[in-house]
């Protein structure tokens, strides 16, 4: 709230994340997994929707939002993911197709942010570190899946495994430039 400069933060990516969580956590109304699980779902939902609210409605934040460069269109990601979820899913029910859609969408939701970083060239520490930690966080899921594969009954997780792998790959190129700039102690820039 103190840092009102959101230059370089993609509203499109934030809106896609809000959509990801809204469509994935429909099971909050039907299943109870654990208190931790429910609390984290509420945190993800409230934080993603409040970021969108801040970027759209808050006077100071909105002023610094780089609208002209953040031109990626939602439908180019949302529609293919919806079609893919309608074709490839485990069960053809509303909740299951929405869950599958959210998994596919999450894999590509970072794209508008990466495009914006590439266009503006000049990357704030804030946005550079944000993307780095988001990618690092997702890659920890892969370690967790390997751990669970060996310690739990053999579940089929193809949809989440492949989508999570694709998501981590999308960050790989960014990681390369991020780590290089860190190693050489220079400001992070992405090639055009």
């Amino acid at each position: 709230r103190k840092n009102t400069n959101k230059r370089g933060v993609s509203l499109k990516t934030q809106e896609l994340y809000a959509l990801v969580f809204a469509t994935r956590y429909l099971d909050m109304f039907t299943d109870f997994i654990s208190l931790y699980n429910t609390v984290m779902k509420l945190i993800f939902l409230s934080s993603s929707f409040s970021i969108v609210w801040y970027m759209r409605r808050h006077k100071l934040v909105r002023r610094s939002y780089d609208k002209d460069h953040d031109t990626f269109r939602h439908q180019f990601l949302v529609l293919p993911c919806l079609i893919l979820a309608l074709l490839i899913h485990e069960q053809f029910t509303f909740k299951e197709v929405m869950w599958t859609f959210s998994i596919y969408l999450e894999a590509v939701a970072i794209l508008p942010q990466l495009v914006l970083l590439q266009r503006t060239r000049n990357i704030d520490n804030l946005t550079g570190q944000y993307v780095f930690f988001l990618g690092a966080y997702r890659s920890l899921y892969i370690l967790n899946w390997i751990y669970r594969y060996f310690t739990e009954p053999h579940y089929v997780h193809w949809i989440t495994w492949i989508s999570g792998f694709v998501q981590t790959l999308l960050y790989a190129d960014f990681f390369y430039y991020y780590l290089n700039s860190w190693k050489n102690n220079v400001k992070l820039t992405l090639p055009a």
């Binding site: 099971d27 997994i33 699980n37 984290m40 779902k41 485990e90 579940y155 089929v156 997780h157 989440t160």
Partner: peptide, 10 residues
Amino acid sequence: GCLPAPKDEL
């Protein structure tokens, strides 16, 4: 054998 995946991940 393989079981259907539980939806316990965030």
